[in-house]
Amino acid sequence: MSFESACTWLSEHAPDLRLIDHGVSTATVRDAALALGVPEARIAKTLALRFGDRIVLLLAAGDVRLDNAKAKAAFGQRPRMLSPEETLAVSGHPIGGVCPFGLATPLPIYCDLSLRAFETVFPAAGSLTSSVELPPERLASLIGAEWTDVCSRPPNQTTHQP
């Protein structure tokens, strides 16, 4: 159902976008980057987070980490990752295929500024083998996301594009 709901949503809201089914796992940032032949940073990972009673989705570049201090400053509380079961229940997508398209439950969605470093990024498309390519600004616009700055790159790491 997850892939189908993402496909249906994309066909209604962005019929020009091409779904990519890799036929191999894209369930991790590393797997997705290898399947696509792009740097890990260009994978738009989707994190399901809880801030107290509030659940949100956060899309961020594949090579960044959630910065607890920045997240607490932005959302007022320290973030907690949802369990795989909670994530599936609220998003309708399994871990490794979580995306902001075709959600089971309406959720607030945020895009981290780290995505703006790239001309295009690759979020998952609801399954463990699929994704879609689009510019970060269009991604945020399509899903009604707010921009936020809650992630950091590990020390001694720089972003690069192919």
Rank of each mutant, 00 (worst) to 15 (best):
G76Y: 04
R78I: 13
P79L: 10
R80M: 15
R80I: 14
M81Y: 15
M81L: 15
L82T: 09
L82H: 00
S83E: 08
E85L: 14
E86H: 00
T87R: 00
T87K: 01
A89L: 15
A89F: 11
A89D: 12
V90Q: 09
V90E: 03
S91G: 15
G92R: 05
G92I: 06
H93L: 00
H93E: 01
H93Y: 03
I95G: 08
I95C: 06
G96I: 09
G96S: 01
G97F: 07
G97K: 01
C99E: 11
P100G: 07
F101H: 03
F101L: 12
F101W: 09
L103V: 05
L103N: 08
A104I: 00
A104Y: 01
T105D: 07
L107C: 07
L107G: 08
L107F: 03
P108R: 12
P108W: 02
P108V: 10
I109F: 04
I109S: 09
I109E: 13
I109N: 12
Y110D: 00
Y110S: 10
C111T: 06
C111V: 07
D112V: 13
D112F: 10
D112H: 12
L113P: 10
L113F: 13
L113N: 15
S114I: 05
L115P: 04
R116I: 01
R116W: 10
A117L: 05
A117K: 06
A117D: 08
A117C: 04
E119W: 04
E119T: 06
T120Y: 02
V121M: 08
V121Q: 08
V121K: 06
P123W: 04
A124T: 13
A125C: 09
G126W: 11
S127P: 06
S127E: 12
L128V: 11
L128H: 14
L128C: 12
T129R: 11
T129A: 05
S131D: 14
S131T: 15
V132W: 03
V132R: 08
E133T: 06
L134N: 11
P135N: 12
P135M: 07
P136R: 01
E137I: 05
E137Q: 14
R138F: 12
R138Q: 11
L139I: 08
L139F: 05
L142D: 07
L142M: 10
L142Q: 03
L142W: 01
I143A: 08
G144M: 07
G144V: 04
G144N: 06
A145I: 04
A145N: 03
A145W: 03
A145M: 08
A145Q: 01
E146A: 14
V150E: 03
